[in-house]
Design a protein around this nucleic acid. Sequence first.
DNA 1: CTGAAAGCGCTTACAG
DNA 2: CTGAAAGCGCTTACAG
Lengths: 360, 360
Amino acid sequence: MAEKKSAEKGLSGGKEKTDLKTLARHLDISQTTISRVLNGTAARYRISEATQQRVLEAARKFNYQANVLASSLRSKRSRTIGVMVPEISEGYSSAVLSGIEDELLFAGYFYFVVSHRHRTELLRQYPSLLLSRAVEGIIAIDSDIQADLSVPVVAVSGHRNRPSVVNIELDHQLAAHHALEHLKQLGHRRIAFIKGQTFSSDTRSRWRAICKVAAELGLEIDPQLVVQLQDDGPGVDSGRTATAALLERGQLFTAIFAFNDLAAIGAITLLRETGLEVPRHISVVGFDDILGAATNNPPLTTVRQPLKEMGRVAAKTLLHMLQSSKDGWPKHSIRILPGFVERHSTAPPAVPPRNAFHSN
Amino acid sequence: MAEKKSAEKGLSGGKEKTDLKTLARHLDISQTTISRVLNGTAARYRISEATQQRVLEAARKFNYQANVLASSLRSKRSRTIGVMVPEISEGYSSAVLSGIEDELLFAGYFYFVVSHRHRTELLRQYPSLLLSRAVEGIIAIDSDIQADLSVPVVAVSGHRNRPSVVNIELDHQLAAHHALEHLKQLGHRRIAFIKGQTFSSDTRSRWRAICKVAAELGLEIDPQLVVQLQDDGPGVDSGRTATAALLERGQLFTAIFAFNDLAAIGAITLLRETGLEVPRHISVVGFDDILGAATNNPPLTTVRQPLKEMGRVAAKTLLHMLQSSKDGWPKHSIRILPGFVERHSTAPPAVPPRNAFHSN
DNA sequence: CTGAAAGCGCTTACAG
DNA sequence: CTGAAAGCGCTTACAG
């Protein structure tokens, strides 16, 4: 009964599905030969042109598509990879995913997406769940994979020092230089910083780079002007909160360098509500160059991460790792160069209205 | 050689992976029994408590995870579905995906995503590619699936009248009513419309609803005030272009109802560049309530689509269809109620500056 | 140049 | 209550 039901509604499903056996019987050719023709190894086995033609034609006519499950099980190649993201609905992840997809589908690979939403138990379970799904490799976007996996891993903005993990890393130093040099040139000296959430792996490396570059440029970082994004809301709220906390300290500053565009937009909104105009009173530099950055009011000056390209590079790298032995794997992180987009959220500093820093 | 290499790097992969046979040998219990215990059918076969305990413990100890490929192949249940989207990096699709994921992972399902980017050959190929991947069902987001498939299909904002397709449909009539009633109350009579791209399946149904509701409210629709989004860029550019075309017609209007928030934001940007302020000179109503709508300047008045919920409903519906026979499937579209968010891009109409409609 | 047979790792009638 | 054996639909040594 249960068996019967699944036979009706099961994977074999529709009217039109042909299997190898049927095709073989129809052509009076062995499954072996058909498989070889369809998998492009005909030449290796010197299968006659005539046979190849017959097979190809019949396959088309019967609309034959090999069952990937069976093929994967036997051949140990699933042509599937897993992608771990914090949250698929965020622009960051979905932009990278778009690049990954470009490469993968071109190579005949499909991918599973899992979002862990920063929950540790999901972060722990997902890698092995993906492995039980027979993925050949994993791309982790801003996600720390703790376990050592049996498949190659490429990490985008999440740096692991493990032998089987290759990192795709933004050049944070250059990024920091872009932003700070720009602010310095405009004349800013009192610059506030909104650091990223602790769970984001970019936070540390970017902050280190900022400190280093600031020192090089002779810019002092006042600990009183450093705040950190706290919670995990998808929107701009954590940027607002952080900016409010910053204002509460009552310290003078003329610019903010935000961890990302969302935080920058949140900062601008909050500043506006307290009577501070951007960039007239305060300049704000974002990070990422998300879709909304250009259409924000004012349009955001921001460090541009080439997210889609990072996805493409990640996928390309993983595919390469799948095809070569470990000694062919990249030895180091793969460095991605950020851009810088000057729009209208930055300007030379001006003295802020006198009550600005005494709002509650 | 090739065989050997794949055995090294293949799916069986890591050190820690155990298979059923090994486990059975170790426990001196048949694979059958182990499989039953692990699949939760122990009760049905009255497997003794003691045996169950031993199996469970060993499975944990050896970190046994059934190979889903093998299991799917035999049982005809892949616990995988396919999701077709126009473009994964767009907020619309990724918000719906987020809701889908909520439900699916809870039920032990994984999903493949494919983006067709409105290319017809991809739209045609993907369904059968997904079927060859043994998906049990497909969710199509804003994507017309032409073929009749052998698996159940749920369409989100893409309405097919086919027996095996269930539609998740926004109540466009209510949506149109929200927006037009709001504009009417404010005093607007000359309302311009930016229609959606022809490839978007929502375009037609929404426009029909708008025409109907406009008639009901006694609002006239001037064909001269109707423009359409043309190209397929992900950003706000098509909204700008459409608005420019609208202005070029030199007709008076006091409000715009845009097909989506991106177009609305594009419209606002373009209006601003030609010296028209929103909402002082022109009111703009968006559609979707994407993340950027609230932080736009001015914050967007917009029809809210509960995208994540639509994803959840789509997944729930598909899972339900997979578990019941066809007579248990929903007979009609499943209707989703839109909300309406009044922010600051709308206001009572004012006479526009006299040169406004003679810009080139 | 081609094919018969084994086997991937499971689940499931079938038998007891 | 439990298990031996068949089989899902492929690919791949192996043999000729």
